[in-house]
Structures are given as structure tokens and as C-alpha cells.
């Protein structure tokens, strides 16, 4: 499906049973819908109505990347409206997790559950990483590819058989629109939410942490869960790119949230 958002076309994968429970999946900075491939296709086959947008400047969606988490949350609300979905379970990874959180705070009626993968609050991004991304330096691609996976990931079996995940991430980041990586990282870095904001979240929340995550360490994810009433944590054996590094465990976390 293609949704008009402020004059820009947002392309989204819309698959599964239109009458099934709705699930909105939101990718991270400089990634695209394919980040969710290990989860979106199996869930769609199980009858879930799955919507996976490419955020502007990512994947098939043109236009400049959104510069704030709140702007992405507004765009997600537009996507849900366009799909005729009143409320969905919303899952996000990294930047996408913050956008899901923001959507739940700004449009609570549109969110029936949250699954936050690789999330922390705040989500600080190192100065060198931000500067390299701002300058369009290839070093920023390498930083995201390597820090975004468990250390020495290329020597370990891939979570997606036959795929070299760090190389796949390099190509995804390189393919994002100019400035998209920096916009996403800066949005992560700038996003704040108060304890009062978080306390108002009244839907089931799961925070999925990677035991080898170097970008949003597991303890930071657990600290976030501690600030949201009733939130539970799920630990998976993976780095920050847990959707690809541990696809089955992440799929299980989504299934549980949809039950």
C-alpha cells in the first residue's frame, strides 16, 4: 500500500488476513521493511494483518527522512488511518521502538499493545557516530554494521541462513537516502519522555533486549521496562540487530504480544 503523508508517498507492505489482529512493524534508523522479514511473513501466514512501512527516505519510500521521533509517530498514525485500522499492536526496533512508544503516548487509542526491540530511554548516540553520519562518511556505515551486531558476528552462524548480516546491514544503510541515517540517529539521541508520560501507557508492553547488544545494552532496556507500568522484558541471545540475529525468538515475542 502507498499512503500520502504530507505530500510524500509512504510505501508499506500490507500482508496477511484483513480480518486478523493488526500488527504495525516499524524499522530502525537507515533500515527498511526487510528488517522484519523473519517475523512479518510467518505472522501474515498465521492470519495476522501485518503492516510494514518504509519510513520516508528508506526502502521504497522517497523524501527526506523524518527528523524527530514525534514526526515518525504522526506518520504511523496516518498509516494506520489509511489502512482503516482503529488500533494495532505496534512493534518497533531501535528508532522504530521510540516511534512506537511516542505513538502510544500521543495516540493511545490507536495502540493496543507495544513490543519494543532494542530500545532504551534515553537512547544516546555517540558524538563520533553522529558526526560521521552527519558528514555522510562511510565510517558511519561501518559503525552501524559492526556495533549493530554482536561482536564477531561474521564468525558465528547467521540468524538468517545463507545471509551475511553485517554485509546486509552495510548495503541497507548505504541504500538509505542521503541524510537518513543521521536524521534517524539524531532523532534517537534527542527523544525524551517523562516518567509521567510513560506511566500513562495503559496497554501491555514487552521490551525485548539483546544480551550482546552494544548499542542499547540489555540493562538499559530493562531500565526502560521498569519505568512503564506492568511492562515485561524478554531477553534474546543477540546483538542490536536482534530481528535478524535471533529471528525466531523475536517472532515468539511478537506472537505472545498478539495473544
Amino acid at each position: 500500500m502507498i499512503v500520502d503523508s504530507g505530500g510524500h508517498a509512504v510505501h508499506a507492505l500490507a500482508i496477511g488476513d484483513r480480518g486478523g489482529p493488526a500488527l504495525l512493524l516499524v524499522h530502525g534508523a537507515a533500515m527498511d521493511r526487510a528488517s522484519w522479514r523473519g517475523q512479518s511473513l510467518p505472522l501474515a501466514r498465521e492470519g495476522v494483518r501485518v503492516i510494514v512501512p518504509d519510513l520516508p527516505g528508506h526502502g521504497a519510500s522517497p523524501g527526506p527522512a523524518a527528523s524527530s521521533v514525534e514526526a515518525i509517530a504522526g506518520l504511523l498514525a496516518t498509516v494506520l488511518d489509511a489502512a482503516g485500522i482503529r488500533a494495532a499492536t505496534v512493534a518497533g526496533h531501535s528508532l522504530g521502538a521510540l516511534a512506537a512508544l511516542s505513538l502510544a503516548m500521543r495516540h493511545p487509542q490507536k495502540v493496543s499493545g507495544l513490543v519494543l526491540f532494542g530500545a532504551s530511554l534515553p537512547m544516546p548516540v555517540g558524538e563520533a557516530f553522529l558526526a560521521a553520519a552527519r558528514d555522510g562518511d562511510a565510517a558511519a556505515i561501518e559503525m552501524q554494521a559492526q556495533w549493530g551486531h554482536a561482536r564477531l558476528a561474521p564468525l558465528a552462524p547467521s540468524g538468517m541462513p545463507g545471509l551475511s548480516l553485517t554485509d546486509l546491514a552495510r548495503r541497507q544503510v548505504a541504500r538509505a537516502a542521503p541524510g537518513a541515517q543521521h536524521a534517524g540517529l539524531a532523532a534517537c539521541h534527542a527523544f525524551v519522555a517523562s516518567d509521567a508520560d510513560l506511566a500513562r501507557i495503559a496497554v501491555p508492553v514487552a521490551v525485548v533486549t539483546g544480551t550482546r547488544d552494544a548499542m542499547t545494552p540489555a540493562r538499559a532496556g530493562e531500565a526502560l521496562a521498569g519505568r512503564i507500568p506492568g511492562a515485561r522484558t524478554v531477553r534474546v541471545d543477540a546483538g542490536h540487530s536482534m530481528l535478524a540475529e535471533a529471528p525466531q525468538a523475536c517472532l515468539a515475542a511478537l506472537r505472545e504480544a498478539l495473544e
Binding site: A128, D135, E142
Partner: peptide, 10 residues
């Protein structure tokens, strides 16, 4: 300016 990045495995 050039930024130093982690080195991929040789």
C-alpha cells in the same frame, strides 16, 4: 573530516 570506524575482520 575523516572519521575512524571499527575495522572489519580481515
Amino acid at each position: 573530516m575523516a572519521h575512524s570506524s571499527p575495522t572489519p575482520l580481515h
